[in-house]
Computed example of a mutant assay.
Amino acid sequence: MTLALSWTILALMKMNGGTEIYFHSSDPAVSPWPYQVAAGGRTHDPGNGGIVDRKYHQHTLILTLSGEGWIRVGNREFAAEESCLTWLDTSRSYAHRAAPGNHWSYVWVALSGETLDSFFIQLNLSTEPVVKEVADLLPDFEGIIQQLANQNTSMDAYMNPHVAAILAELFTKRAGTPSHREADPVSIVMRQLRMDLSRNWDITAMAAIAGLSQSQLFRRFQAATETSPISWLRRERMVLAEHLLTVSSENVSAVAQRCGYADPFHFSRDFKRHCGRSPRAFRENARF
């Protein structure tokens, strides 16, 4: 898809409102590339679509094309203005919508990767998530979205340079005043859990990683994510399970093990509570 055609689509979306979204169709665990793009798309919010506060386990980058968005991170609010990029860790508490009286148009990508948490911390994006004057990143966003739309077998090879270019630009913008603070304990725990969701984690191990008591960890986790560490871990596993059931052919027991469940019956029970249907029913519907 050409950049001109992309802008034409956005013009039509601005007339009617809506989202053009593409999902990755492969298993992230088998990718040899450093960054895995889960989804991307183009959105026009005419100001009447309500608040978005979905829970994922990726980092999401939003590049505003026109208008202005309102983004809440924790208990703080930020303006997503034209030519600004907003970086969200969507496992934390957040919400966004068009600012009052605005039609907000933006492109976005959701991605994961071992170094993204480090970028997020070092560039102080947890407290200052908006990076200004980065309109030149639009071709990289469009390159990623085009690959997701095409769904060819070498899409990761083409998307990773675009991700690297985006990160390089953001690093340059923030290089003058990076945050050299130690990562906060919640971020440390999140990073360790994400790296090995199959492990049998308990609150004792989490507190040890954070260097906090269990009660201290619980309070800090609740403030950052509006949920407990165990509930956050369960949600992370369910999001991974949804993806694996959609893109892989592994049986339910194998998916359960990769998501940290030794007992497939326990996994199926939690999955049904999360999604409202069994893993098999979810897979059948996802592939229909």
Rank of each mutant, 00 (worst) to 15 (best):
F120I: 00
S213V: 06
L123K: 01
G176T: 02
L167H: 09
G176M: 10
N102K: 14
H180L: 15
L148P: 00
G176Y: 10
P129Y: 01
G176Q: 11
A208I: 06
P139W: 05
Y106V: 04
S198C: 01
V109G: 01
W108L: 09
V163N: 04
V130M: 07
A164E: 15
M195R: 15
W108K: 03
V131L: 14
M155F: 14
T177A: 15
M155T: 05
A164P: 01
W108C: 02
R194T: 13
G143L: 08
G176R: 06
V107C: 10
L167K: 08
N150M: 13
S105A: 15
S187P: 10
S179A: 10
S126I: 02
P139V: 08
S187R: 07
T127P: 10
P161V: 01
I166M: 12
P100W: 03
N152T: 11
D184C: 12
A164Y: 01
A110R: 02
R194A: 14
V130Q: 02
F119H: 12
G101V: 04
E114Q: 12
V107I: 08
L137P: 00
T204H: 06
G113K: 06
A208S: 14
V186Q: 05
G143V: 05
V163D: 05
I166R: 01
G211F: 07
E142T: 04
F141D: 08
H162G: 02
I188P: 03
N124W: 04
D156P: 00
T115Q: 11
G143K: 10
L212R: 03
M190G: 11
L116K: 00
Q147Y: 10
Q151I: 04
G113P: 02
D196L: 07
S179E: 09
A207Y: 00
D184K: 07
Q146E: 15
I144M: 12
R194K: 14
I144E: 07
L212V: 00
A175M: 13
F171A: 13
A205H: 03
I188Q: 15
T115F: 09
S187Y: 02
A165D: 09
L193N: 05
S105M: 04
N152H: 13
L148E: 06
S179V: 03
A165I: 00
